[in-house]
Structures are given as C-alpha cells and as structure tokens.
C-alpha cells in the first residue's frame, strides 16, 4: 500500500542558516534530508509546526551542497512563521512539485529574465544554473524590478552579478532614495532599451501577474514567439499534487501543469477576470 507516492506528509528538516533579505523576507538554508533537490522553478510545500502550509519556490540551485534554499516573504500567518525561523529550528517540507523553468530549451540561446519583487527568488536558480555551466547558454540578461532599493533581495549577490561579465544584470525601482544611483521606472522601460535577437531568445518572468502580462506583451511586440516566453503563476494550493482542485486556472492545475507555463498557453486566461 505504502508504495503509492502520496507525498501528503511533510519531512521535518533542520534550518541550518537564515539570512534576512528585507524587512519581511528571509532566506532559509535547510538540510535536504529525504527531499530531492528540485529543478529551478519548482516549489516545496513548507510546514511550520502546527500552523499550515505554504507553497514556496526553490530560491537557489544548491543541489551539490545538499541544501534546500527558500526565500520567504512573511505576508500571511504561515509565511510569517516560516520567515521567523532561526537556525536549529525544524520545518516540515514536502516536494518538490511542479514544472519548472525550461532549462533544456534555454541551452544555446539568449536568456532574458524579468523578475519583480519576490519573483527574483524563483528565478535565482536559473542564474545559478547558467553561471555554473556558462558555455552551454547564450547571453544572460536579467531585469529586476523592486519597490525600493531597501526591498531588493540578495543584495550582496546582486553586486557580484552587476560587476560580472557573465551576465547583464540591471535593477530598477519604483521609488529610489537619496543614495540610489540606479534606475527608476518600470521594468518594461529597461527591457525596451535592451538589444537582443527575439528569434534566438527565451524569456522567463516571475512577479505580479500584471507585470508578467506587461512584460510578455512587450516581448511579443518585440517579435518573440509566445511559446518562448515563460511565466510562473500562483494560486491557492492545498495538496500540490493535483488532487484538491484549489489551484485551477481555467483548465490548468498550477501545481502539476505549472507553475511555469509558456505564455502562449495562458495568455488568454490571464486576461479573464476572476478565473
């Protein structure tokens, strides 16, 4: 009987390290235990004891180190409890679930990543994967939109990316501060200035749905095929295994058909209200 892969019970894993990212976001490094590392774009269901579960994407490609890395923004009771964990605490994990970013299709092509807010977390493993196997991919252009400079994730790592010749990384904020010497404005404005060959490019975007729609539409106007633009969706999730029905988005289950979808598959659904 137990041969059936139910994956409905969490595996308790120890928190090895925590890094505060912003006022409400934290990166957790966990031992990986019996949980498979997961591919960029996949997610785990995280369970702080007794409180409930939240679907959180994997935020680093650190399989070699046998570590699970998640970046959590504490916005609800469950995610806030996860973001408040300290090293030594134990967190329940089940997963990994879902269809991740199209890393195989990305090989040999220019990769455009557009992240908004916490949406950089699910895209960071893509950057790690490309940098680890740099020659296998074309140019890597990353556009990161944040609310303010203080609300950027992974700040020490961003500096390295900005300085690196291996990728073209730019941040833009909605609102700067006195010390901000970087870009101000919406990500599409930066994207509009970037030069790349739409026919040889694959794009991946993660952020608020309105941002992803604007980004995808801009890329379509630039001549990219809808199948080459990939977006990561979010909906209510309970089981993550296609059994509970909660995450349905039109005919799709975000948990098992996604969370990453080619834009062509969901462009029409994204414009339907309350779907």
């Amino acid at each position: 009987m137990s041969a059936l892969p139910t994956r409905l019970a969490p595996v308790p894993l120890r928190v090895l390290a925590t890094t505060p990212e912003t006022a409400d976001s934290t990166t957790l490094v966990l031992e990986s235990g019996a949980i498979q590392p997961g591919a960029p774009g996949q997610f785990n269901m995280l369970y702080p004891f007794g409180l409930g579960e939240a679907a959180i994407s994997i935020s680093a490609d650190d399989a070699a180190a046998r570590r699970l890395v998640h970046t959590v923004r504490g916005v609800g009771p469950v995610s806030a409890a996860i973001a408040a964990l300290r090293p030594g605490d134990v967190l329940g994990v089940r997963g990994p679930f879902g269809v991740g970013w199209p890393m195989r299709q990305a090989r040999g092509r220019t990769i455009v990543l557009v992240a908004g807010g916490i949406g950089l977390a699910p895209l960071r493993p893509v950057i790690h994967a490309v940098l680890r196997e740099r020659a296998a991919y074309g140019r890597l252009l990353v556009f990161y939109g944040a609310r303010t400079p203080r609300e950027r994730l992974f700040v020490p790592e961003l500096a390295g990316w900005e300085a690196s010749a291996d990728l073209e990384f730019v941040t833009t904020v909605d609102s700067g501060d006195a010390n901000w010497g970087g870009h101000v404005g919406f990500v599409t404005a930066l994207l509009a200035q970037a030069r790349f060959d739409p026919a040889r490019t694959i794009a991946m975007t993660c952020g608020p749905e309105i941002m992803m729609r604007a980004v995808a539409n801009h890329l379509r106007e630039r001549g990219m095929a809808a199948e080459d633009i990939h977006v990561s969706m979010e909906r209510n999730m309970k089981c993550a295994a296609g059994l509970c029905g909660h995450c349905q988005f039109g005919p799709l289950f975000i948990c098992k058909d996604g969370p990453v979808f080619p834009y062509g598959r969901i462009a029409e659904l994204m414009t339907v209200r309350e779907i």
Binding site: G145, D174, G185, F186, T188, M211
Partner: peptide, 10 residues
Amino acid sequence: AARLQALDMF
C-alpha cells in the same frame, strides 16, 4: 509604465 508603477504592485 507610470500607471503600473503607480499600482505599487510590489
């Protein structure tokens, strides 16, 4: 872009 920025979507 200004409209989207004004939404404070992040």
